[in-house]
């Protein structure tokens, strides 16, 4: 990790930890000046960016987070069976505007099924979902057209919202840039790497400015920098009032979310995350 990467990671960490924007800018500028004038490896001078961000938070505190808004997504009593096998039993989740909810659980416990039911792409055997506002959904894989360019995907999604081609392309490229990707190239989706294709997937889901954003492990294939940018973008969306639901199996990110829904059957694990809602108990 060079100095630029270190500073980028520090910026993202400060943002994640809700350090006030002005204070974060000031801290990063000071660190950049120090590195430029004094030289040296930032890892030696300041230590890991996460650790330094932690020290900054301890020193200057954080900006108060916005209070959660009205309920945007309410899934109640979701039950789904495949033949005799019950995948989901009475799963319940409520997410308000300005909150991030993580759906976690072992492989095959119904995380993707739950999200598809919330998106209205699949019917449950029991239960109801209420969504306030516009819905965005990013599948785990697929969901793009192999032979279309990124810009053409943006135009296609934009047309669904009645957005003209130029603005749709610009909005798509700007959203892609948030993930560290310049999307305006002449490359068909099938020629993109797995990670970049997921960036396209994710960009498409945020393009319609959804009030509720459902993400099914969208970070597969992301490198470390993009992964940091991804959580950074989720925080920005949360701060802008979006209700975000993200399926994840990376438990080290749970301190960055407001609500956790664990769908692992209770007999398989004794552990329950704080803030757990519903799921199979």
């Amino acid at each position: 990790m060079n100095a630029d990467d270190w500073l980028r990671t520090l910026t993202a960490e400060l943002h994640q930890r809700r350090v006030a924007a002005d204070a974060a800018r000031h801290v990063v500028a000071e660190a950049a000046t120090h590195l430029r004038e004094g030289g040296g490896d930032p890892w030696v001078v300041f230590g890991p960016p996460q650790q330094y961000a932690g020290a900054v938070v301890e020193s200057i505190g954080t900006a108060p987070g916005p209070r959660p808004g009205p309920v945007r997504l309410h899934a109640a009593g979701i039950t789904k069976r495949y033949g005799r096998r019950t995948v989901l039993h009475d799963a319940t989740l409520t997410v308000r505007a300005g909150q991030i909810a993580a759906v976690i659980g072992a492989n095959g416990c119904g995380k993707s099924t739950f999200l598809r039911i919330c998106a209205g792409l699949m019917s449950p055997d029991a239960g109801e979902v209420t969504v306030s506002g516009r819905l965005g959904y990013c599948p785990q894989s697929g969901g793009t057209a192999d032979f279309l360019l990124a810009d053409e995907h943006f135009v296609l999604v934009g047309a669904g919202q009645g957005v003209a081609r130029g603005p749709a392309r610009r909005a798509g490229r700007a959203a892609a840039r948030q993930l560290g990707w310049e999307a305006g190239g002449d490359v068909q989706a099938r020629h993109l790497s797995g990670g970049t294709r997921q960036k396209l997937n994710l960009t498409m889901s945020t393009l319609s400015a959804p009030d509720v954003l459902l993400l099914d492990e969208p970070y597969q294939g992301f490198d470390q920098g993009t992964y940091v940018n991804f959580w950074d973008q989720l925080s920005r969306l949360r701060d802008a009032g979006t209700a975000v639901v993200v399926v994840t199996h990376l438990l080290n990110q749970l301190d960055r979310v407001d609500i956790v829904l664990d769908l692992t059957p209770a007999r398989e694990t004794g552990w329950h995350a704080p803030g757990i809602q519903g799921g199979r108990q």
């Binding site: 209205g120 057209a145 032979f147 999604v157 889901s205």
Partner: peptide
Amino acid sequence: TAARELEPRLRLSGYRPHH
């Protein structure tokens, strides 16, 4: 066949089936 996975998300983006 190629559009099978794309269409549900286009539906969420504001398209109706007949579009």
